[in-house]
Structures are given as structure tokens and as C-alpha cells.
Nucleic acid binder design. Structure first.
Lengths: 210, 210
DNA sequence: GTCTATAATTCGATAGAC
DNA sequence: GTCTATCGAATTATAGAC
């Protein structure tokens, strides 16, 4: 006879990391207390230290779970783009960056806003939190900067740098505002995501090239 | 005979509000402790509560001192722009928004970067801190949306809204990153500020119009 | 792995002398 | 207005029973 076991409670470690993502997104690192966290997650305070070691290590785990699939998909699209014969256009490069960000987050519709806010907040946290988050995206960031530099050889590296930084800022803002009354991204169906991607690429590409 | 009194120490209240602006900028509201504040400001802990009442009220004072001259100048430039015969260009409107944000901060040259970071951080603070800051800028936001709508009558209001939202996101990002290694705004001299203003307007204007 | 209990520290805020 | 001293609560983190 086969045993069928149905787990009625979410795995503790996963439950902690999930609630932590939301609280870090809403209140920041310093504004999030472990007691609020364990209270909302329905787990014991000691479980946080048992599973993650410290509050800062918990943040590292949240960032890693969040960033790795995203970076992986960004790099795959970029690789695919560079496999062609010709130098990819700025529009194509920006699309490779923006599309997975809008799509992968939209897969988890209920958590779209939370995950977007979390990503946005990571950029404005004080050290060392900011660097922990930036480290997870460092590989992808460098890859996009390099290909943009090759696509725009007449622009200085510092120009590429600050412009790409503004592209990221706009992307994060679109994600953070998703679903709100006048936001660019209204719904999570593939047609709206496709439209938002195209409009955002169109909004950013001319500035990137001029 | 006339008495001449030379104050050797900075006024306590002003000293507190000045150091508070820097710490809030660097570490956020939750990340700033009053004990760090009084230590760096060289004042007594009780002086903070005596002069400001509470930590949150101190934040209100910092925001008010920061935002009011800025909003005043934004509205003055916008008024001046609309006084002319012709409809102002998108470049001119965006310049009226961006220029005072970069320039008025430069009046206090030693604190330019600090004040820029502070403004950037205000937008990403959790409630109720974010709303306290946003409330100070609400009037100017509506004024800019209205004039942009008149300058771009072929675009829907929702388009104007999300595009202007991205303009603010970019401006905030420039301010928040001011002084950092690869930021658009590096130094505090008027030439760098002028250059940064022009480049940012050029970066954003085409996307606003397309 | 999960829990209770608590250590060790730090926080914002206040009372009261001067 | 400025100070010392301290309160009461909250914080991260740990020890140890089960």
C-alpha cells in the first residue's frame, strides 16, 4: 500500500524566506524585525537563527532565491542575441533585459508587487545590504554593460554606465507600480506584458542612443 | 558701548537638523538612531526631544526645510515658462523640473551630495515616512502633469502619467546616486550641474514625446 | 528541528537637578 | 536650555530541554 502524505503546513525554511521577502520589501532591512517576521510567518524566533544564522544571512538567502533565476534568464537571452551575425540593436538589448524581468515576476501574480518592491528597495538600502543585493546581479549587469558598449562605441564607458543605471531605475519603477491605476503595466496577461515591454523599450532607447 | 558676541558653537537646533539630514540620507529613517545622531552632532540626547519632540517630528522638520524652497522654485520656473506666448517645449518643461532639483542643492555646496541622497531616499522609505515626504511635493507634481498634458495633447492622460512617473524615477536615481563612482552627477560645481541637467533632459525628452 | 527562557544590548523617550 | 540618570520596551542572538 502506498502512503500518501499531505503536508498541511508550509515548510518552515520556505515560509521564513517568503515572509522575509515581503517585509524587507515593505519596510527595508533595518525596519524589519525578526519578531514581526516570525509572528507573521507563524514560526519560532529561534528557527530563523537555526536555518539562516543571522538576520543578514537571511537577507542574503532572500536575495539569492530572488535574483538567480532572473539573472540566468537575462544572460540566456543576451547570449542568444549575440549568437547572431550582426551587432544587436539597442532596442534588442534592452528587450533582453526588460522582458524576463516583466515576465518572470508576472509568473507569480500574487507576489508581483512584493517582488518588484523588494528589487527596488535593494538598490536604496544602506551598506552592506546594498552591496549584498548588487552582488547577485553583478554578472548580468556587467554583461549588459559590455554589449551596450559594443553597440554604442562612440559613447564613453561612464556614459553607458549612468544611462544603464537610469534604465534599471525605470524598469524597477514600472515593476513597483504594476497594477496601480495609471501604471504602465496593468495586468499580468502576456499581451499586456508584451505591450509594456515594447513601450518601455521605446521610451528608453532614444535616450540611450543620443 | 556695543557688545560683540561671537558664537563659537553652532546653534544646537540647527546642528541637530543638519546631521539628521545626513544620517537619514545615508542610513534611512529606521537605520538612524538618535544616539548616533547626538554623538556625531556633539549635542545631548535630551536636546533632540526638547527641540523636536520625537524622532518622527525631527524627520518632518528635516523634510520641510529641505523641500519648501525646492517646490517654490519649481513652481516659479513653471509659472515663468507659461507666461510666454507659445506652448513651452517638453525640453523646457523637463528642464524646469530638473534644474532646480540639481541647482538648489548646490547652494549648500558642502552638503550637495548629502541632500541629494536624502531626497532620493525619501521616495523609497516605508510608510509613514514616504507620505510625509511626498506630501511636501504634491502641489508641484500636479502642476507639471497639467502642463505636460497641454504640451502633449495627442497623448492620453495615462500615458502622461506613467511617463512622468519614469522621469521622476530617473531624477530621483540621479540624486540618490550623486557622488558615487559611476553616477551622472559627480561634483558640486555649477558646470557639472549644468551638464548633468542637460544630459538628463536629453535622455528623457525623446521618450516623453514618442 | 522546534520550543521556552533569557542573556546582552540598544532603542526612543522622560524625569528632574541645575 | 542643557545635563545625568534611568525607565520600559524592543532588539538580535543563544543556551538548553525536549
Amino acid at each position: 500500500m502506498q502512503k500518501i502524505v499531505v503536508s498541511l503546513t508550509t515548510d518552515t525554511k520556505e515560509q521564513i524566506i517568503s515572509v522575509a521577502e515581503r517585509l524587507f520589501a515593505e519596510r527595508g532591512f533595518a525596519g524589519t524585525t525578526l519578531r514581526n517576521l516570525v509572528s507573521e510567518a507563524g514560526v519560532n524566533l529561534a528557527a530563523v537563527h537555526y536555518h539562516f544564522g543571522s538576520k543578514e544571512d537571511l537577507f542574503r538567502s532572500v536575495v539569492a532565491r530572488f535574483a538567480r533565476p532572473l539573472v540566468e534568464q537575462e544572460l540566456a537571452l543576451l547570449e542568444q542575441l549575440q549568437a547572431g551575425q550582426e551587432m544587436p540593436s539597442v532596442e534588442a538589448i534592452l528587450t533582453a533585459l526588460i522582458k524576463p524581468n516583466l515576465e518572470i515576476l508576472a509568473q507569480d501574480k500574487d507576489n508581483l508587487l512584493v517582488r518588484a518592491q523588494f528589487m527596488g528597495r535593494c538598490q536604496t538600502e544602506p551598506e552592506p545590504i546594498k552591496s549584498i543585493a548588487a552582488g547577485e546581479f553583478a554578472v548580468s549587469t556587467k554583461a549588459f554593460l559590455d554589449v551596450l558598449q559594443r553597440a554604442l562605441p562612440e559613447q564613453s564607458r561612464s556614459q553607458i554606465n549612468w544611462k544603464f543605471d537610469l534604465v534599471i531605475a525605470a524598469l524597477i519603477r514600472v515593476l513597483a507600480e504594476a497594477g496601480q491605476p495609471f501604471a504602465l503595466l496593468q495586468n499580468t496577461n502576456s499581451q499586456d506584458i508584451q505591450n509594456a515591454t515594447e513601450r518601455l523599450v521605446k521610451f528608453l532607447s532614444p535616450g540611450m542612443q543620443c
